[in-house]
């Protein structure tokens, strides 16, 4: 199963996008083994599995699992299980995973570069090298200053692809779903 990772800062809007995506796809979210998550390899006693995931069928290309990576802040998270998930997601982000980089465009519009964490800049740098394996989701587009933020994100992060979305109004969610359904096997970084 291929992986699509909703990655970004805490509070960027990842969970809302995942739920809006499930609503638009008219699919239930899956949990644990039903979502195909391998239970092996977790540290003992750690929760270490994403709460829910959206599993999409891509026909002859198999299935795509869309899940939310615990927020990438400026400091390591206190929960070892969530850190375990982050580390798996980072390994996937630079190899075969599809990175859906979620950034709060309204915050960037209102607060400028202060609203971006190091992880945002670095994920965008990964995006430049991944090409097809990266999509910037400019989230919270229904809020004031989001249009300014979107323009700044285009200029500052120079993403190969960007999609403005709003989980509240549904803007861009159907487009994201179409994009995900067209996902083909991706090349990891460094491969030819």
């Amino acid at each position: 199963m291929r992986e699509a990772l909703l990655m970004g800062q805490p509070g960027a809007g990842k969970s809302e996008i995942l739920r809006a995506l499930a609503r638009t796809a008219r699919r239930r979210m899956e949990r644990g083994r039903a979502a195909g998550f391998p239970a092996a390899g977790r540290p003992p006693g750690a929760p270490g599995l994403p709460g829910e995931a959206l599993v999409l069928s891509l026909g002859r290309w198999g299935r795509l699992r869309v899940w939310e990576v615990p927020g990438l802040g400026s400091r390591p998270l206190p929960d070892p299980g969530l850190r375990w998930l982050q580390s798996r997601a980072l390994a996937l982000a630079v190899t075969s995973g599809l990175v859906l980089h979620v950034v709060d465009a309204a915050a960037v519009g209102a607060r400028g570069k202060e609203a971006l964490e190091e992880a945002d800049w670095e994920l965008a740098a990964v995006g430049l090298r991944r090409g097809d394996g990266y999509l910037l989701l400019a989230a919270q587009m229904d809020r004031p200053w989001a249009a300014t933020g979107l323009e700044r994100l285009r200029r500052w992060l120079e993403p190969p692809a960007v999609l403005p979305v709003s989980a509240r109004t549904g803007e861009g969610i159907a487009g994201l779903l179409r994009y995900l359904r067209r996902v083909r096997p991706l090349r990891p970084l460094g491969s030819r």
Partner: peptide, 16 residues
């Protein structure tokens, strides 16, 4: 990152 001695951003920077 898993051990909590590196933030995700730092890990990605070192990778880059």
């Amino acid at each position: 990152v898993e051990a909590g001695t590196l933030s995700p951003g730092e890990a990605l920077r070192l990778f880059r």
